[in-house]
Design a protein around this nucleic acid. Structure first.
Lengths: 344, 344
DNA sequence: CTGAAAGCGCTTACAG
DNA sequence: CTGAAAGCGCTTACAG
């Protein structure tokens, strides 16, 4: 029913070899223009579309990229992740690669490996891996296929793992955010992480926050809480922070979505942003400018990183197997949520 | 290097047939428990993972679902779409199906068909198809594989197209939203669509808005503008609406993300929500409760619909090929953006 | 209860 | 410049 390359060959009056050569645009095949057209016409006439499984089995390559997401719940609430998916999808498409989404609910590393072994994909982009996964990622990269970790800290480089990474430098950016608060005169700066600190990116932001405090000699005022990606969880985390009765005049919030919840919790408790509590977010999600108080935040470039991660994968697929690391410098976007310099 | 079923068979001392039977849990094969264990152990020992392409080629099924997204740009800005992707990914996973993401930038219908023909997927979930695509979807469903349209209006049923649909009833829900405003005493109710009205869902909401106005004899006050999914575009659309100098006391906004922009535009122009302008949104995105003014909105259930669309596909894959249509009744969530009943 | 063998639809040396 | 044929790694009637 669906035509195969045999039908195309027959209609064009050539062999399947020739059909394969022209359809795949094989350079060194030296097909004459006349034959080429005959094949193209025959294929068009029959509405021929090569069977992907057969192609993959014969060629050993699937022409598809595997995008591995952390706990799929994140995608429900976190605007950042959606932008990563979108940009990876867009770039894959531009590069004529298909995109397979794999979500790992907890038992991640098992899945990475099975996906790699199944031959379903030619390479893997792993978003926000946990630190415990690094060894497995390194091994998959060595044993099976190219892999780039998205949002992985550069620390991974130092500790001898071997896979490519892309993403912003969470540690440096967190310091950037916190230093902004310090320069405005804040001393008691709390932190609300956007998720469990078993995530490398969460942990790095926390360390950046602490490091900035330490350098300014303000670590004695450090208080922290952790949310779980959603604005709702940010609301709850802020309530818990408030209950500690440790004073603070500013909060570095691990991402913008969570910051929406924090702002509301503060407001519900009668605290004004930025007058009573200054807020810096992280991500610069599209809605950051539309928050109840326009969010000062760290702008990273998920779209560029998504695009780059696909490019890095393709480069490795083309034989350049050295692990590379890609960073784009982030920017502090100053809006209204920190207010002016303190005059005390 | 990667072990094949031959190695497993050899190690277990059986044939490849037997290996295939136990690994695929073939019921009527009558494999003895002893043989089963031998095979399982051998597979585990070798770290065997079947080659997906070979499986697919031999069996004729890819065990993967294709999720076709509209213009991929939508995913950058629209929180709703991310929830659809997440729920489809989650349910596919639960059903042991892989998920392939296909984005169509404009020239959609071509892609649907090619994907279907390539055998890469066993079925298609098409999100927010344009009305111009219906014929093609119907044909793909008839010729190649099961297909469910996500977010397609039930009107498609009436006009004789043959494919399954799931999604909320945009027309009915829009009326629900607008009637709420009417009941509060509003007469001049504007509309800002969330995207181009070539999208069926946008068009249906617009029709619902108009229909509610007509039933109340208020259509002479109808003014409208269209955004393009983002809060930014909502901001601009609201500015354009204001420039028309046609008075309105309320706006039915096509989705919540756009409503964020509308609220800010109003506020920047010195208009207060809800005192000067009441707002109803659509979607009940997780941030709706954290908007500058808590959004009254229509709560749909994208997660349930995502899950259901996978279930519908599987049912069709199992032989039940009749097109079915699935609706979940939506709810009006009353928060603060409409204020109390008008007393004029 | 198990195995030998054909077949899925391509690609790709190889030969001419 | 083009074709015959082997091979990719599975599944699945079929035979016993």
């Amino acid at each position: 029913m669906k035509p195969t390359s045999i039908e195309v060959a027959r209609l064009a009056g050539v062999s399947r070899t020739t059909v394969s050569f022209v359809l795949n645009n094989v350079k060194k095949s030296g097909i004459s223009e006349a034959t080429r057209l005959k094949v193209l016409n025959a294929a068009a006439e029959l509405g021929y579309e090569p069977n992907a499984a057969a192609q993959s089995l014969a060629s050993g390559s699937s022409a598809t990229i595997g995008l591995v997401l952390p706990d799929i719940q994140h995608l429900y609430v976190d605007a950042f992740l959606a932008r990563v998916v979108a940009s990876v999808a867009e770039e894959s498409r531009a590069q004529n690669m298909k995109l397979l989404i794999e979500s790992t609910d907890g038992e991640a590393s098992q899945n990475y490996r099975r996906l790699a072994k199944s031959g379903r994909v030619d390479g893997l982009i792993v978003v926000n891996p946990r630190e415990g996964d690094y060894r497995e990622l390194s091994e998959i990269n060595r044993l099976f296929m190219p892999l780039v970790a998205f949002g992985s800290p550069s620390r991974s480089i130092a500790t001898g793992y071997e896979f490519s990474t892309t993403g912003s430098n969470n540690f440096v950016n967190a310091k950037l955010a916190v230093n902004h608060l310090i320069q405005l005169g804040h001393k008691k700066i709390a932190h609300i992480g956007f998720a469990s600190s078993t995530f490398a990116s969460v942990h790095s932001r926390e360390r950046g926050w602490l490091s900035a405090l330490e350098e300014a000699g303000l670590e004695q005022y450090a208080v922290k809480e952790f949310a779980n990606l959603s604005a709702d969880s940010g609301y709850q985390a802020c309530l818990r922070l408030l209950q500690k009765n440790t004073p603070f005049s500013a909060i570095f919030v691990g991402n913008d979505t969570v910051a929406f919840g924090v702002i509301k919790a503060l407001s519900d408790k009668g605290l004004k942003v930025p007058e009573d509590v200054a807020i810096v977010g992280y991500d610069d999600i599209p809605l950051a400018n539309y928050a109840p108080i326009r969010l000062t935040t760290i702008k990273t470039f998920p779209e560029e990183h998504g695009q780059k991660s696909v490019a890095m994968l393709l480069e490795q697929l083309n034989g350049n197997t050295a692990a590379t690391h890609h960073r784009i410098e982030s920017q502090l976007i100053v809006r209204d949520s920190c207010g002016p310099k303190l005059t005390t």
